[in-house]
Nucleic acid binder design. Structure first.
Length: 420
RNA sequence: GGAGAGGUGUCCGAGCGGUCUAAGGAGCGCGACUGGAAAUCGCGUAGGCGGGUUUCCCGCCUCGAGGGUUCAAAUCCCUCCCUCUCCGCCA
C-alpha cells in the first residue's frame, strides 16, 4: 500500500500518480477520512492520558491508606468517554485502511502511458525460425507424440488441465533444474514454499482485494491456492526487520501455480498456453530502495539469459501503466515467439513493487538511516507450460519430433522428443 | 485427533493486578583505556501512530491476535492463531 504520510504531505503528487493509472477516484474521501481520524485520535488520547495519571494517583493513595473514591469515579468517567470515542475511531480507521489497501502502487515515471495495447517493445532477440514444412502447434505435436493429453485431463479435471507424459516430463524437470542452477550461481536461494496460504498473505502481496476472483479457495479451511510462489516468498520476511548487510536477499521459488482464469473464458483455449495448473520457477528479491532499480534489471537479465540458452526467440516489452498489477511500479515482460500462433506471447514477467508489498507485509530493514521499508521484486525464471510450448514449437522438425536444446542435456533432458 | 507446556523488544530472557516509565544478558552504535587490537569500563539502542516551539520534546498504542473484567492488565477471564513435548494416525 501507499505511504499515508506521502498522501498527506504531497497529495497532488499522489493524485497525479493515481490518475495515470485511472485510480484516483477515492483519494479525496480518503484524505477527509484521515483527517477525521486524526482529530478524533487526539481527543481519545488526551482522555486516556488523563485517566492514566489518575489511576497512578489511586495506586499511590491506596498505598498511603487514603480514600480514593472520588478520583476513581473521575477516572471511570474519563475511561468511559475514551472507550466511546475509541469505538467510533475504530470504525473510521477501518474505513481508512480499506481505502488505502484498495489504492494501487504509483508507477515509475518512465513506465509507458496507456493500456494493454500500448506496450513498448524494447528489443527483439533471436530470429523466429523459418520452417520448410507446414508448422504444427504444440497440441498437434504433443498429442501425436503422446506427451500431452488434453482430452483425458478434461474428463478428470475439466477444461484447461493437461496430462504431461513421457519425455516431456523429463524435459520439464530438466528445465527446472537448469534454471535453478543458473539462479543459484547468481545468488538466489532455492525454495520450495507452501502453496496453500492464508488470506493475510494474499492481502500482504496485493493479490487481495484486487485479484480475489482469480484465486482458488479451499472451502473448509480458509486457505488459498497460490497463483505464483511470489506470495509465499514475499511472506518469508513479513513482520521482520532484517539487517541491511544481509541484503539483497534473493530466492528462487519452485512451485505449482493455480489460477482460476475467471474472466478469461474463451481466451487462449487451445492447448496448455493458459491452464489452471502449471509449475514455475520464480525469482524474488528483497533490496534497499537504492538498489531496487538495478535489481530489476538483474532479474530481467536472468530471464533473458535463460531464454537465450534455451534458443527461444523473444522480445522484451515495457508494460504500460494501465496493465500493471496493483503492486507493481514497473514491469517488463519477455514474450517468446510461438510459431503455432505466429506471434510473440508472454512467457516471463518481472515487476518492481518498490515498498508497496513491504509496507503491507511490514518487511523492513535496519540501515544507516534507521528502520525503513524494504523493496520487493519478482520475476519469472521459467513458467513451465509456456516455456515447454516455446521449446516444442520452435524446435520442431519435419518428421514431428522435437530437438531439445543442448544446455538441458546435463540436467537429464532427453536428446529429442520423438515417437516410440 | 488426544494430553500437557509455552508465545515478552534485533536476539535470549525475567516479570504473573498498581514506581513496568518492561529487570538482566547478548548483539549493535558511540566513547574511554591501547602503538593497534582483544578484554574491560561508561553511555546509548524496539516498533507503530498522533501532536509540537521539529539535530529535539510530548502523548497514545503494542508483551502472539482479538474481545472482556477493573479506577488500573504483560499479569485475571473468553475466543482464535502459532510453537514445542508425549501419545495416536500417516507418505
Amino acid at each position: 500500500m501507499l505511504d499515508l504520510k506521502l498522501i498527506r504531505d504531497d497529495p497532488a503528487r499522489v493524485r497525479a500518480g493515481l490518475a495515470r493509472r485511472g485510480a484516483d477516484g477515492d483519494l479525496d474521501e480518503l484524505i477527509a477520512v484521515d483527517s477525521e481520524a486524526r482529530s478524533l485520535r487526539g481527543e481519545v488520547e488526551e482522555a486516556k492520558a488523563e485517566r492514566k495519571r489518575l489511576s497512578k494517583q489511586i495506586g499511590q493513595m491506596r498505598g498511603k491508606g487514603e480514600d480514593s473514591r472520588e478520583v476513581e469515579e473521575a477516572a471511570k468517567r474519563l475511561g468511559d468517554s475514551a472507550s466511546h470515542g475509541e469505538a467510533r475511531l475504530k470504525g473510521i480507521e477501518r474505513r481508512r485502511a480499506e481505502m488505502l489497501l484498495a489504492l494501487p502502487n504509483l508507477a515509475e515515471d518512465a513506465a509507458p502511458e496507456g493500456g494493454e495495447d500500448d506496450a513498448v517493445v524494447l528489443r527483439e532477440v533471436g530470429e523466429p525460425p523459418r520452417f520448410a514444412f507446414e508448422i504444427r502447434d504444440h497440441v498437434e505435436i504433443g498429442e501425436a507424440l503422446g506427451i500431452i493429453d488434453l482430452e483425458r485431463a478434461a474428463k478428470v479435471s475439466g477444461a484447461r488441465f493437461a496430462y504431461l507424459m513421457g519425455g516431456l516430463v523429463r524435459l520439464q524437470l530438466a528445465v527446472v533444474t537448469f534454471a535453478l542452477d543458473r539462479l543459484e550461481n547468481a545468488g538466489f536461494t532455492p525454495v520450495i514454499p507452501p502453496v496453500l496460504v492464508r488470506e493475510s498473505a494474499m492481502v500482504g502481496t496485493g493479490f487481495f482485494p484486487a485479484d480475489r476472483a482469480s484465486i482458488y479457495e479451499t472451502a473448509a479451511d480458509d486457505l488459498f491456492l497460490v497463483g505464483t510462489s511470489e506470495v509465499p516468498l514475499a511472506g518469508l520476511h513479513q513482520e521482520e526487520i532484517v539487517h541491511a548487510d544481509v541484503l539483497p536477499l534473493r530466492y528462487a521459488g519452485v512451485s505449482t501455480c493455480f489460477r482460476r482464469e475467471a474472466g478469461a473464458a474463451g481466451k487462449d483455449t487451445r492447448g496448455i498456453f493458459r491452464v489452471h495448473q502449471f509449475d514455475k520457477v520464480e525469482m524474488f528479491s528483497f533490496t534497499t530502495p537504492e538498489a531496487s532499480a538495478d535489481e530489476h534489471q538483474l532479474i530481467l537479465g536472468m530471464e533473458e539469459d535463460i531464454l537465450q540458452a534455451l534458443e527461444i526467440p523473444y522480445r522484451v516489452v515495457d508494460i504500460p501503466i494501465g496493465d500493471l498489477g496493483a503492486s507493481a511500479a514497473r514491469k517488463f515482460d519477455c514474450e517468446a515467439w510461438m510459431p503455432g500462433q505466429q506471434r510473440y506471447r508472454e512467457v516471463t514477467s518481472c515487476s518492481n513493487c518498490t515498498d508497496y508489498q513491504a509496507r503491507r507485509l511490514k518487511a523492513r530493514f535496519r540501515g544507516s538511516r534507521g528502520t525503513q521499508m524494504l523493496h520487493t521484486l519478482n520475476g519469472t525464471a521459467v513458467a513451465l507450460a509456456r516455456t515447454l510450448i516455446a521449446i516444442i514449437e520452435n524446435h520442431q522438425r519435419e518428421d514431428g519430433s522435437v530437438a531439445v536444446p543442448e544446455v538441458l542435456r546435463p540436467f537429464g533432458a532427453p536428446a529429442e522428443l520423438a515417437a516410440g
